[in-house]
Amino acid sequence: GKMTGIVKWFNADKGFGFITPDDGSKDVFVHFSAIQNDGYKSLDEGQKVSFTIESGAKGPAAGNVTSL
């Protein structure tokens, strides 16, 4: 299901970062391709987001990332 969290950091040049889930679980990798907006796909440190957990090739990653 949907989770919420805070963006820990995001490197716009490399197109990835990490989200710290509100439930205290392990930080989740986020790739820019998972960001659900029409414009420039980037996130800001400290931004609140909702997301799902998808299993990627390198382990769990955030999917369906939407800013709240």
Rank of each mutant, 00 (worst) to 15 (best):
G1I: 09
G1Q: 08
G1K: 04
G1W: 05
K2E: 13
K2C: 06
K2A: 15
K2L: 15
K2Y: 15
K2S: 14
K2M: 15
K2N: 14
M3Q: 12
M3L: 13
M3G: 05
T4L: 11
T4H: 09
T4A: 06
T4V: 11
T4D: 04
T4N: 09
T4R: 04
T4P: 03
T4I: 11
G5N: 00
G5Y: 00
G5C: 01
G5A: 02
G5E: 00
I6V: 14
I6H: 11
I6K: 12
V7E: 00
V7K: 00
V7S: 01
V7D: 00
V7Y: 01
V7R: 00
K8W: 03
K8I: 06
K8G: 03
K8F: 04
W9K: 04
W9I: 04
W9Q: 03
W9F: 10
F10R: 01
F10M: 02
F10Y: 12
F10A: 02
F10E: 00
F10N: 01
F10D: 00
F10H: 01
N11G: 04
N11D: 14
N11H: 09
N11V: 05
N11S: 12
N11M: 06
N11L: 07
N11K: 10
A12M: 12
A12I: 14
A12Y: 11
A12E: 11
A12L: 10
A12S: 14
A12K: 15
A12C: 07
D13N: 12
D13Q: 13
D13V: 13
D13H: 12
D13T: 15
D13I: 14
K14P: 02
K14W: 11
K14Q: 11
K14M: 12
K14N: 05
K14C: 06
K14D: 04
G15T: 02
G15W: 02
G15V: 02
G15D: 01
G15A: 03
G15F: 03
G15K: 05
G15Y: 02
G15H: 05
F16L: 05
F16S: 02
F16V: 06
F16M: 08
G17S: 01
G17T: 01
G17F: 01
F18H: 03
F18G: 02
F18C: 03
F18N: 02
F18I: 05
F18P: 00
F18A: 04
F18L: 04
I19H: 00
I19P: 00
I19N: 00
I19W: 00
I19F: 02
I19K: 00
I19Y: 00
I19T: 00
T20I: 15
T20F: 06
T20M: 13
T20R: 12
T20V: 15
T20G: 05
T20A: 13
T20P: 00
T20H: 10
P21Y: 07
P21G: 03
P21R: 04
P21D: 02
P21L: 08
P21N: 04
P21S: 05
P21H: 03
D22L: 10
D22W: 06
D22P: 03
D22G: 05
D22A: 07
D22I: 08
D22S: 10
D22F: 09
D23S: 08
D23I: 06
D23M: 06
D23K: 06
D23L: 07
D23W: 06
G24M: 08
G24W: 07
G24F: 08
G24Y: 06
G24H: 09
G24K: 09
S25P: 05
S25G: 13
S25A: 11
S25V: 06
S25Q: 10
S25H: 06
S25R: 09
K26F: 10
K26D: 12
K26A: 14
K26E: 11
K26R: 12
K26N: 12
K26Y: 10
K26T: 14
K26S: 15
K26G: 12
K26W: 08
K26V: 13
D27T: 06
D27N: 08
D27K: 04
D27S: 06
D27F: 03
D27Y: 04
D27Q: 07
V28R: 02
V28Q: 02
V28K: 03
V28L: 13
V28A: 03
V28I: 13
V28P: 01
V28T: 03
V28E: 01
V28F: 05
F29S: 02
F29G: 02
F29C: 02
F29Y: 10
F29N: 02
V30W: 02
V30Q: 00
V30A: 03
V30P: 00
V30F: 14
V30K: 00
H31F: 11
H31Y: 05
H31D: 04
H31E: 03
F32W: 14
F32M: 13
F32N: 07
F32G: 07
F32R: 14
F32Q: 11
F32P: 02
F32Y: 14
S33R: 11
S33H: 09
S33T: 12
S33M: 09
S33V: 04
S33Q: 08
S33N: 09
S33P: 03
A34C: 04
A34L: 03
A34D: 09
A34N: 09
A34R: 06
I35Q: 03
I35L: 10
I35R: 02
I35V: 11
I35P: 02
I35C: 04
I35M: 05
Q36K: 12
Q36L: 14
Q36D: 14
Q36E: 12
Q36N: 12
Q36T: 13
N37W: 10
N37C: 07
D38G: 11
D38K: 11
D38R: 07
D38F: 09
D38Y: 09
D38A: 11
G39F: 07
G39R: 08
G39T: 10
G39Q: 10
G39S: 08
G39A: 09
Y40L: 12
Y40M: 12
Y40T: 12
Y40I: 12
Y40K: 15
Y40W: 15
Y40P: 13
Y40A: 12
Y40H: 14
K41V: 07
K41D: 07
K41G: 08
K41P: 11
K41C: 07
S42C: 09
S42K: 15
S42R: 13
S42L: 12
L43C: 03
L43F: 06
L43A: 02
L43V: 05
L43Q: 01
L43S: 01
L43D: 01
D44Y: 15
D44C: 10
D44P: 12
D44S: 15
D44N: 15
D44M: 14
E45R: 15
E45P: 15
E45M: 15
E45S: 14
E45G: 12
E45K: 15
E45W: 14
G46L: 05
G46Y: 06
G46H: 06
G46A: 05
G46M: 05
G46E: 04
G46S: 05
G46C: 05
Q47E: 13
Q47D: 14
Q47G: 07
Q47P: 01
Q47F: 05
Q47H: 11
K48E: 08
K48S: 09
K48R: 14
K48D: 04
K48F: 08
K48G: 07
K48I: 10
V49Q: 01
V49L: 03
V49T: 02
V49E: 00
V49P: 00
V49W: 01
S50V: 09
S50R: 04
S50D: 05
S50T: 10
S50K: 08
S50E: 14
F51I: 02
F51N: 00
F51H: 01
F51Q: 00
F51G: 00
F51L: 03
F51M: 03
F51D: 00
T52N: 10
T52M: 09
T52L: 09
I53M: 11
I53P: 05
I53N: 04
I53K: 08
I53G: 03
I53E: 03
E54P: 02
E54F: 10
E54L: 09
E54T: 09
E54G: 07
E54Y: 09
S55D: 11
S55M: 15
S55V: 15
S55Y: 12
S55T: 14
S55F: 11
S55W: 11
G56K: 10
G56S: 15
G56T: 15
G56F: 09
G56H: 13
G56N: 13
G56C: 05
G56P: 04
A57Y: 12
A57M: 14
A57N: 13
A57P: 14
A57S: 13
K58N: 14
K58G: 13
K58V: 09
K58A: 13
G59S: 08
G59Q: 06
G59T: 05
G59Y: 08
G59I: 04
G59F: 08
G59M: 06
G59R: 10
P60E: 10
P60Y: 09
P60M: 13
P60K: 12
P60L: 14
P60I: 14
P60C: 05
P60H: 10
A61I: 15
A61T: 14
A61D: 04
A61R: 13
A61E: 15
A62R: 01
A62I: 02
A62E: 01
A62V: 03
A62W: 01
A62M: 01
G63D: 08
G63A: 15
G63Q: 14
G63E: 11
N64S: 11
N64A: 10
N64I: 08
N64M: 11
N64H: 10
N64G: 08
N64R: 03
V65H: 01
V65F: 01
V65A: 02
V65L: 05
V65S: 01
T66W: 06
T66I: 13
T66R: 07
S67V: 15
S67L: 15
S67Q: 14
S67E: 12
S67R: 14
L68Y: 06
L68A: 10
L68E: 11
L68W: 05
L68R: 08
